[in-house]
Amino acid sequence: MTSTTRQGRRGAFNAPRRPRRFHPTWHFWFALPAIILVLAFFLVPFLANAGFAFTQWTAYSSDITWNGFENFRTLADLGVLGHAVLITLVYAAVSMLVQNVGGLFLANALQEPTRVNNVFRAVFFIPVLVSGLAAGYIWAALLAAQGPLNQFLSAILPGGFVYSWLGNPVSALVAVAFVDAWKWVGLAMTVYIAGLNAIPKQLFEAAALDGAGPWRRFWKVKVPLLAPAFSFNVVIGIVGALSSLDIIFAATGGGPGDATTVLQVASYRQYGQGLFGTASALSLVIAVIGVVIAIPLISALRRREVRL
């Protein structure tokens, strides 16, 4: 409704639209620089990646030739492909989960902009500012076998506690995913606070008058209305985790063994060896995972936008 009236009003300023001919209005010229950049350095590489993944392309020859699924076969034979996919999915899932549970919890506790709350918000936002490398180094030190965490555990547990958190494949993977979440939970918190602030207060009051307790109000009123903030955090969390590399480089270097070698790290390794074809293949896998996760969530976001 509103959009048609708006369009009608705007019509007074634009040349009448002639069908089937390209008559750029000012809109086009204003968007053009951004369009060129996005097409040249996002869309084209994104599409080209799908092509390069099926080519024989190395640093040792200037020829790029098609080789079908050869890159994927090579990676599968090396045991890199399936393993890296699995590691990446676990990493993204753990990180996204911790980020959102933590962010939602903090947002609920700190929604009101009181003075104390503002101090706490500021404190919990600090890790967002730290670079991924810095986060990786700090936590590698905290989690070291003789490090502060184990010193603390030794103090409260009988008989001392020595465990190499980053030395065991499973705990190392969970630990680096946790560091990723640690770094981003402050941002998820702010997005959820913004979401909570966008909910009209009357809705809670109405629900309370209708006899809904705090728990019911949380699940039946807050959670559904927080859906846009939720989708935003989930997509950004997962996509961020998919291209995460710095935390892992700093904390484990991809090890122990290849326990934390996510796709992005594996791709960098192939690239580092001059194997651009296989590196592209791994990059394509990241892109496909991203598309499969992001598209349904984006369309859900857009549907909601229309409704609101």
């Binding site: 996002f42 084209v44 590489p45 994104f46 080209a48 990646n49 390069f52 997509v235 950004i236 996509v239 998919l242 291209s243 992005q264 791709s267 690239y271 651009f276 590196a279 592209s280 990059s283 394509l284 990241i286 892109a287 991203g290 598309v291 992001a294 969530l297 984006i298």
Partner: peptide, 9 residues
Amino acid sequence: IMLPPAIIP
């Protein structure tokens, strides 16, 4: 914003 960047291309 939502998709990981394709670095090699």
